[in-house]
Design a protein around this nucleic acid. Structure first.
Lengths: 156, 156
DNA sequence: GCCGTACTTGAAAACGACTTTCAGTTGCTC
DNA sequence: GAGCAACTGAAAGTCGTTTTCAAGTACGGC
C-alpha cells in the first residue's frame, strides 16, 4: 500500500489511485494517453463532486484542445474501474467523486451555495437494513441525501 | 373535510383532492377543461408512482386525442399546487405520486421488477436531523431511497 | 344565449445533458 | 519503424422533457 508520509498530501492518495488505474487499464488492454493522464490526475486531486463540465474546465486550463467527449469517456472509464462514483443531486447533471476504498458515505447538500458535505452514520445504516428486511427486501445499495442551508449561508 | 364513508374508497380521498385542486385553480384563474379533469382524476385514483408516459397511456385509453404536453403540464400544475410530488429513482424518468397531506415517506425500490414500496421510520428522521445540525445545516428536505431485491423476485 | 379574450391544447420544434459515430491520430507490440 | 487496434475531437444522435405557436375553448359580462 502507498505510504502517506506527508500530512499535506492531497487527500485520497493520488499515486495509489493512479497505480490502481494503470493496473485496470493494462488488464483491459487500454492505453495511456496524454489526455487520460491529465483528466484522471485532475480528477484524483480533486476533493469535490465534479460534473463533466466542471472537470472539462479544469482540464482545458492545462490543455485547451481537450474535448468534452474525452472527459466523458474518461469518467466512464473511472466509473467502470471502480475508482469513481457517479452521483445525482437533483439538478439534472451527473457528478463524480473519487471512490473511497473504505466504504460508503452519504451527502448533505446546501440548497443556497451548493456546498456538499459527506456524512456517515452507522445507526442509520442499521435502520435502513431493518426497514428493508422487514418489507422482504434484500438491500443492495441506497441513496441518502439531506438538503438544507449550511451555517455560512444562514449567516450570510 | 371529506368523509370516508366507504371503506373501499380509492385510497387517497379523490373527492377531497379534486376539491383542493379546484380551490387552487380558481384561486389562480385557471380553467377546468375535459383534459385536466381526466388527467387529474386518473392520477388521483392511482396509487402508483407514475411517469408522464404511463399516465398518458391511461389517459389515452379514455381519450386517445390527449397530447403528451397536456399530461406534462397537468402534472406540473399538480406539483405546483402541492398535490403531487415529483420523484427520481435513477432510471432517468420523472415519476409522480399523490402528495400525502400527513407528512413524508421514503422508498424501497426493487432492482429486479421495479416495484416501489413506501416506508417511514421516525428514528431515521431523527438521526438525519442530528447529522445535519451537527454539521451546521438546517435541514429542509431529504431524499432516501433503498434499492434491493424484493421477496417475490428473490423467489422467482 | 352570445362575445371576447385570456387560458388551453396538440403538434412540433427546442433544449440540455449526455452518448455514439466517424474520420483522422497515436500508443504499443513486433 | 511499421501496423493496427485503441483513442480523440467534432459533430450528429438520443432521450426525456420543456417551450412555442396557431387553433380551440372556458367562462364572466352583456
Amino acid at each position: 500500500m502507498a505510504t502517506a508520509s506527508h500530512k499535506n498530501l492531497p487527500y485520497p492518495d493520488v499515486e495509489q489511485l493512479k497505480a490502481r488505474l494503470d493496473e485496470y487499464m493494462s488488464r483491459h488492454g487500454l492505453r495511456s494517453t496524454a489526455q487520460r493522464r491529465l483528466v484522471t490526475e485532475l480528477f484524483f486531486e480533486s476533493r469535490e463532486h465534479l460534473s463533466i463540465e466542471e472537470l472539462l474546465e479544469k482540464v482545458r486550463r492545462r490543455d485547451s484542445r481537450v474535448g468534452y467527449a474525452t472527459v466523458y469517456r474518461t469518467l466512464k472509464l473511472l466509473k467502470d474501474s471502480g475508482l469513481a462514483n457517479e452521483r445525482h443531486f437533483g439538478d439534472g447533471v451527473s457528478r463524480y467523486e473519487v471512490a473511497h476504498e473504505d466504504g460508503h458515505h452519504d451527502h448533505l447538500i446546501c440548497t443556497e451555495c451548493g456546498k456538499i458535505v459527506e456524512f456517515e452514520d452507522e445507526r442509520i445504516e442499521q435502520l435502513q437494513e431493518e426497514a428493508a428486511s422487514r418489507r422482504g427486501f434484500t438491500l443492495i445499495r441506497h441513496k441518502h441525501e439531506l438538503y438544507g442551508v449550511c451555517a455560512d449561508c444562514r449567516r450570510g
